[in-house]
Amino acid sequence: MQTLQEAPSQSGLPIPLTQAPNSTIDDGVSGSEFYSWLGECHGFFHNVALIVPSLLFVLYLAFQSRKSFSKLSHGRSYIMIAYYGCLWLVSLLNLAWCCFQAWECSPGKEVTWNILSLFTTSGMLFLEVSLLAFLLQGNYASGLEALTRTFFISGILVVLDILLKAIYLFGLGIPLFIDNNDRAHRTKWALWVVHRLVITAIYGFILFMYHSRWRERLPARPAFYKYTAIMFTLNVLVLFACLLTGNGAGFGFWLYSATIVCYHAFYLPLLYVTFLADFFQEEDLNLENVYYSEMKDAGFFDADWE
């Protein structure tokens, strides 16, 4: 009996039937895997809209890292150093979350996806709560006491949020982070409504302070007001989408997906532009003022007065 590995030819020599190393079959399999990674689950455009902005932001942080490290080391602001490090960590987590969207729809990957989603969303929430604490302080603070107080309060809130979500996920079996066929889970959407209602109320309270007699307690920076207005609008949309989806409306589920894409793709760049970019620019202005004062004391501008 002839084996499948060899077949006799007309010249009597065996002809191998094994697959050639450079066969196009392997290319087809790898191409299929690439398409399943990028195109399945929520779709090609959904995944690209998440991955591209997140990847570009991480590359931007890497490109600016040398300059940022130099300014942070000279500025000696403990809050800014810690916040910049947290931003790096959360940006990498968010990029991984955006790249592995296929895990959400893959059997056997539910636990891994839930853990990744839990830490990613909690890290972004930590940055969000910390920035709100900075806003309510009224100005930048650079002392260890301010850093400890702010991060301690933010850490407690985020740890409580992680514990509650872990109970919902692994104790009660509520699929908080699986959004493909879950419009029937009313308990899940009720939980998200409460979660978003609290965050929306906080941003709404800060906006109210900007238009009240307590405005002087907030930083006199237009960027902070714009940030608060953007986040208030986004959370209102998410809250509205959760209410609609909980009642079975298909448009609500589409709106919820769109707001989640916007949040994971653009929140971290918005945070950087609002908070850290201003700090780095102020350092440049402060250095220029120092150099000018030193040159003036040395008599470089005496000729201008003659």
Rank of each mutant, 00 (worst) to 15 (best):
S73W: 08
G75W: 03
A146F: 05
W103C: 04
L276D: 06
F224Q: 12
S130L: 12
H264S: 08
L38A: 10
G28A: 10
I51E: 00
A201L: 13
S154D: 02
D284R: 10
V158L: 00
Y256A: 13
A265D: 09
H42R: 09
T150R: 14
G39Y: 03
Y225T: 10
L89T: 12
I202H: 09
N139A: 14
P16T: 11
A258V: 13
V90N: 02
F275P: 04
I115T: 06
Y263L: 12
N247D: 12
I167K: 05
A184E: 11
L255Q: 10
L244S: 03
L287Q: 14
L144V: 09
L55D: 00
T245W: 05
L270N: 11
L234G: 02
K71G: 01
Y267Q: 01
V198M: 09
R183S: 09
R215K: 15
T148D: 13
T3K: 11
A201I: 10
S9H: 07
E110I: 07
S257G: 13
Q281F: 04
R217E: 11
W103L: 09
L244P: 01
G43L: 07
N114K: 11
C98F: 01
T120N: 06
T274W: 11
P175F: 06
L4D: 06
K71D: 10
L55W: 06
D27T: 14
K188M: 04
L268D: 07
A249K: 12
G75V: 01
F44M: 13
T259N: 03
G31T: 03
V198N: 02
S257M: 05
F301S: 02
L276I: 06
A82L: 02
A82C: 13
A96V: 09
W97E: 02
W305L: 15
D304L: 14
A229Y: 11
H264P: 02
A277F: 03
